[in-house]
Simulated assay, not measured.
Amino acid sequence: MPHPKTVEEMFESAGPIEYRLLPRLIHVTEAAAIAAAYQMGRGDKHFADQVAVASMRRMLNKLDMKGIIKIGEGERDEAPMLYIGEEVGTENGDLEVDIAVDPLEGTNLTADGCPGSVAVMAMAERGGIFHGPDIYMDKIVVGPDVVRYEEEHPGERIDLDAPVSHNLEIVAKALGRKVEELVVVILDRPRHAQKITEIREAGARVRLVTDGDLMPGVATAVRGSGIHVVMGAGGSGEAVLTAAAIKILGGKILARLVLPTVANGKTKEKIDEEIEEKMPRLEAMGITLENINDILDIDKLVPGKDVIFSATAVTPGHFLREVNLFGGGDARVHTVSMGASGAVRFTDSIYIKDKRETPLYL
């Protein structure tokens, strides 16, 4: 009987980014989450995002690497920090990395004290993360059971252009469930009204979220999460970050860039205005009207091999606990981090500001 893969072999398979940066990446997302947690429930989403961005950037600039933001807070003229193209890190050492960040996924959720907000980041070797525009991506996300089913049944595959019922039937067979037992997460937006109707007509159950479908996408690859599929059009950056985690966990994502005016069913005049405004920037990234509708799979969204991912909850999440703040600036945070070697860590961290004054509680 062959011996199973050992932990030693997994460590040996870790690339230099995972080996040297993943332990530090946890500190980056945790610092951003704690900063945002102090603004939880205060009603100011912009300031909550601002402090998370500033904290994440300060922490990133302490890492020995040459990093470039590929998915960030927006274009340089729109975002003062962590903008697309910004160079971060100390520039010491030989690690050159592409970075995707969302310092506060779910700004409204944090401002209103609602579940689901996180600080999240992914890294890969240079050229390893999709360099795309800050528009929408229509997507479908599923876990590794579906990937295995597709390998065993080559004629049955999920398809972004297929009817909703077709995709749900494949997911149900892959999970050994009935369609009626599936839970599909989708953003609660008018643009999704027809798709929500189709999901319900197919027999599946819908879980609407007001914001933040990134971690539900990751949850499709976590058994026991209660989430089986994520569908719908959301931010392109969130789709790429989801793809980084899903790639590590063995799941699948199919996505397509879409202009917000198109996704939201605006008039031809509005669509033409957006095309005129945004296409020059998109074309500089290699995206044209001819290829904008191309299907992007996981290897196009995250082509890198040495991929790492970290997410720290700010408010209660789908499988993460929220930041708890104690007197004197102490905090307890819950993080999921992972690398391409297959090592996934759930980290429960306690930051004690004054060790003489604060006892450690279990």
Rank of each mutant, 00 (worst) to 15 (best):
M65Y: 01
E276V: 12
T210I: 08
A36V: 00
H3Q: 15
D306L: 03
G67H: 02
Y351H: 09
T6E: 04
E274R: 09
F11E: 09
E91C: 10
M123Y: 02
A172E: 02
P260E: 09
D161V: 15
P16E: 06
D145S: 14
G327E: 13
I129R: 07
A331R: 06
R126G: 03
G74K: 06
V146K: 08
D64E: 03
M1E: 12
A233K: 08
M123N: 02
G226F: 00
G132I: 09
M137G: 12
G72M: 03
Q39F: 11
I68A: 00
G286F: 01
L182C: 03
N108K: 14
G203R: 06
H27A: 10
A244C: 07
K195Y: 10
K305R: 14
I99Y: 01
L249D: 03
Q194R: 15
G127I: 04
E269R: 10
G41E: 08
R256I: 03
P303G: 08
I292M: 13
I140Y: 01
V230Y: 04
H192N: 11
E198T: 08
M81N: 10
V230E: 02
L60T: 01
L22Q: 00
E73A: 06
G15S: 11
T6R: 04
E198K: 11
N293C: 11
I196T: 07
H334A: 05
T197E: 08
T267P: 12
D299R: 14
I275M: 12
P216R: 03
R207E: 06
G15A: 08
G41V: 07
I275W: 10
A54G: 05
I292Q: 09
I135H: 08
K5D: 14
D272R: 11
Y38W: 15
P216K: 01
P303D: 14
Y361R: 12
P80Q: 06
E150Q: 14
M40N: 05
D145V: 12
Q50W: 06
L168T: 07
F319S: 10
M121L: 14
A193C: 08
L296R: 15
P303F: 11
D272I: 06
G286V: 00
M81P: 00
M10A: 13
V333N: 04
S117E: 00
R58I: 01
I34V: 07
F319W: 08
L254K: 04
V171A: 13
L187H: 03
G304V: 01
T347C: 01
G41H: 10
A36C: 00
T197Q: 13
P303E: 12
L82P: 01
A48N: 02
H46V: 14
I34D: 00
P216N: 04
N291R: 04
T220L: 02
A14Q: 12
S310Q: 07
V323I: 05
V28D: 01
E290Q: 08
G234Q: 00
C114P: 03
M123V: 02
